[in-house]
Amino acid sequence: METYDVVVVGARCGGAPAARLLAGQGLRVLLLDRGARGSDKLSTLYVHQPGVAFLRAWGVLDEVRATGAPPITELTYRVRDVVLRAPGPEVGGGNEAYAPRRGDLDAILGRAAEAAGVDVVHEASVTELVHERGRPAGLRYRKAGRWHEVRADLVVGADGLRSTVAGLVPAESYAVHPKLSCCVYGYWAGLDAGFEQHQGDGLWVGVIPTAGAHVVACYFRQSEFARVRVDVAGAHDRCLRAAAPSVAERLAGAERIGRLIGMGDQQNYFRTASGPGWALVGDAGHHKDSLTARGITDAFVQADLLARAVAEAGSLRPARLDARLAAYARERDRRMMPFYRSTLAVARLDVEAERLAELRRIAASPELRARYGAAVAGVLTPEEYRLHDAALAP
């Protein structure tokens, strides 16, 4: 039997920072992950400016830059006759976003956790929780054919959409919304493009620069997924020609790297974020359509909120810890819910006359373009943006 203060399940964008921040408080932390070290993951890759501010504060931004992911300081959004170019907002000492490959980013975050004193174990499958006095007191996991039992005062689930920890505690789902979009994406080398978004009727194209390539993602309504999955290459090409013909032309001179990947499991939900002796971080506790690419940044926010809650508890004694974990859950929902609602609105892929008129007005005003960029990055909540936008209206 191994004894720790905290065991975190999932060593990616939610779990690795949470483990590192908790270890920085002097706690003994074990970080488990079922994947191999440095393994890749389905992802939009994009880290918004507030997420980059965390990377800067955690001292790993130079490593992220060294992966070759270029700085992204402007967004181009095209829909019908509207072309809107919005600058990235200044957050924490810079205005750049980045889209590093997940194998690189997750490895960097894992190394930072190890450097902080976290014990990291990969290729470990969690099978059950250990309970004591009506609360989790650790877990059991299997690695290389051997069983291990870990005792800990706090169990953190950061193990993604299909979280084992969320199922074991169990966490209740709420604010669940039907799937809205599906996606086909791939990587291209030699594409001349910045960070671009193109919208058509029922279609959306996202172009994101990463290390040595661009991600080109085509989104469709979820009702199209059965048809899209039959011919992902044909669907990707049709989407580009209809919604982003300029991207289709430029791709003709680029080289696709690897295969196209279809993604239909665009779940939208919240799960209970905490309970006696446990908490959830990242996709384990909250997931929304990937079209707005908020997953990584939101995971960073939640890791920071959880670490602050544990620090405020000042002790891992149940009464103090559980009260602060409950406060963490409330704050997570307060932070995440506005962007959840706005993502659901965008992921319907509707092009409305009212929205087009609003975008034309934004495109014509440098101040509104800056506010729009701040809203996309998550510096402003949708409510804050709308209130300020209304005040500027003629």
Results as ranks from 00 to 15, higher is better:
residue 232 V to L: 12
residue 14 G to H: 05
residue 119 D to W: 04
residue 275 G to V: 04
residue 18 A to G: 08
residue 67 T to Q: 04
residue 85 R to E: 13
residue 303 A to V: 05
residue 59 G to I: 05
residue 254 A to C: 00
residue 149 E to W: 10
residue 257 I to E: 14
residue 3 T to G: 00
residue 113 A to I: 11
residue 54 F to P: 00
residue 262 G to T: 00
residue 78 R to M: 02
residue 27 L to Y: 13
residue 161 L to R: 15
residue 148 H to Y: 15
residue 216 V to Y: 07
residue 133 R to L: 13
residue 251 L to Y: 09
residue 281 V to H: 11
residue 389 D to L: 12
residue 119 D to T: 15
residue 107 A to E: 13
residue 168 L to K: 08
residue 274 S to P: 12
residue 352 E to L: 15
residue 134 G to Q: 11
residue 376 V to H: 07
residue 301 V to T: 08
residue 263 M to T: 08
residue 256 R to F: 05
residue 192 D to E: 15
residue 135 R to L: 09
residue 233 A to E: 15
residue 31 L to I: 08
residue 4 Y to C: 05
residue 224 E to Y: 09
residue 71 P to F: 09
residue 113 A to E: 09
residue 228 V to F: 08
residue 45 L to R: 13
residue 122 H to I: 00
residue 371 R to F: 01
residue 380 L to R: 10
residue 241 R to W: 01
residue 16 A to R: 07
residue 177 H to N: 04
residue 138 G to Y: 12
residue 191 L to M: 06
residue 138 G to W: 14
residue 386 R to F: 04
residue 49 Q to R: 10
residue 171 A to C: 03
residue 53 A to Q: 06
residue 334 R to F: 02
residue 237 D to E: 15
residue 37 R to P: 07
residue 279 A to Y: 10
residue 302 Q to V: 01
residue 242 A to N: 06
residue 287 H to L: 15
residue 112 A to S: 14
residue 143 K to D: 02
residue 145 G to D: 03
residue 362 I to G: 02
residue 70 P to V: 12
residue 243 A to T: 09
residue 177 H to T: 11
residue 355 R to P: 00
residue 55 L to Q: 03
residue 97 A to W: 03
residue 265 D to Q: 14
residue 59 G to E: 05
residue 88 G to I: 05
residue 320 R to C: 01
residue 8 V to Y: 12
residue 88 G to A: 02
residue 382 P to E: 11
residue 92 G to C: 08
residue 391 A to N: 00
residue 68 G to I: 11
residue 374 A to G: 14
residue 381 T to I: 09
residue 96 E to V: 03
residue 69 A to N: 02
residue 185 Y to P: 00
residue 94 G to F: 02
residue 383 E to D: 13
residue 185 Y to V: 02
residue 6 V to C: 10
residue 280 L to P: 04
residue 217 A to T: 03
residue 215 V to C: 04
residue 210 T to H: 12
residue 65 R to K: 14
residue 176 V to Q: 08
residue 52 V to F: 03
residue 266 Q to R: 13
residue 116 A to Y: 07
residue 69 A to R: 06
residue 25 Q to M: 10
residue 384 E to R: 13
residue 342 S to M: 06
residue 108 I to G: 02
residue 49 Q to Y: 03
residue 15 G to M: 11
residue 164 T to K: 12
residue 321 L to M: 07
residue 242 A to I: 05
residue 381 T to H: 09
residue 279 A to D: 08
residue 341 R to A: 13
residue 262 G to H: 11
residue 76 T to Y: 01
residue 120 V to L: 15
residue 341 R to Q: 13
residue 262 G to C: 06
residue 1 M to A: 10
